[in-house]
């Protein structure tokens, strides 16, 4: 049977939907990998919450400038056309609806579009960063994630049980097994692994998958 997509392949699949010239914010962790898989000929402009628009890839080790980091606090580089701005302007870009795409990680995504990705409960040190801002504002807010938790539990659920990041905010989910849109409070299946049966996919999904149209084949190159 077809293997589930690796995390890099999930990021690759998400990158195929980003248009040339789109303004894009990639969340810390897995989502930042999306940047390296842009199709040839397309170039998005990446936004970083700490006040950079249009930054480039990581520098060679030893060439880091620690005044030039992204939201993950990793060293990045300048590109022609980079702009710097303060934090209020940065989140005006976010909340003001100026970003085209935001891609986030998730603990759980619910069929009503709710996202839980900042806390798994009251233990430890809570931290939220920009996640609650990013889910409000971008024209498309997508999640990339494995289809199941490490314990084998569905991450696509009827209703989130972890603390919410935002309500009704997610448009599309890219997983290791499927591409699912959220429309009218329902999961709508768009793509799935070729020889994964609908029944098998439904069995590892925590809410009903609706299939109003054709379902494409989810594939990605070795990356």
């Amino acid at each position: 049977m077809t293997s589930p997509l690796t995390t890099n392949q999930i990021a690759w699949r998400a990158a195929q939907d980003i248009e040339d010239g789109a303004y894009v914010n990639l969340g810390i962790g897995l989502p930042v990998r999306v940047a390296q898989f842009q199709p040839p000929g397309r170039e998005a402009i990446f936004h970083s919450e700490n006040g950079i628009l249009g930054f480039g890839a990581a520098p060679a080790p030893g060439d880091e400038d620690w005044d030039l980091i992204n939201a993950s606090k990793k060293s990045v580089t300048l590109k022609p056309g980079t702009a710097f701005f303060d934090h209020a302007d940065s989140f005006a870009m976010v909340r003001g609806g100026h970003l085209d795409v935001a891609i986030l990680g998730a603990y759980q995504v619910a069929e009503n579009g709710d996202l839980a990705n900042w806390s798994t409960g009251p233990r430890g040190v809570p931290a939220v960063g920009g996640a609650m801002d990013l889910v409000h504002g971008a024209r498309r807010v997508a999640v990339i994630t494995d289809h199941l938790t490490r314990k084998g539990e569905p991450k696509l659920v009827h209703r989130c049980t972890f603390p919410l990041t935002g309500l009704g905010c997610i448009n599309r989910v890219y997983t290791s097994h499927a591409v699912v849109d959220i429309e009218d409070g329902r999961f709508v299946l768009r793509e799935k692994l070729a020889d994964l049966s609908l029944e098998a996919l439904q069995a590892i999904t925590g809410a009903r998958l609706h299939i109003p149209g054709p379902v494409g084949e989810l594939t990605a190159p070795e990356v």
């Binding site: 303060d86 934090h87 209020a88 989140f91 976010v94 909340r95 939220v128 960063g129 609650m132 801002d133």
Partner: peptide, 8 residues
């Protein structure tokens, strides 16, 4: 704890 954009 304050969301980052709200803090700004």
């Amino acid at each position: 704890l304050v969301p980052q954009g709200t803090l700004a």
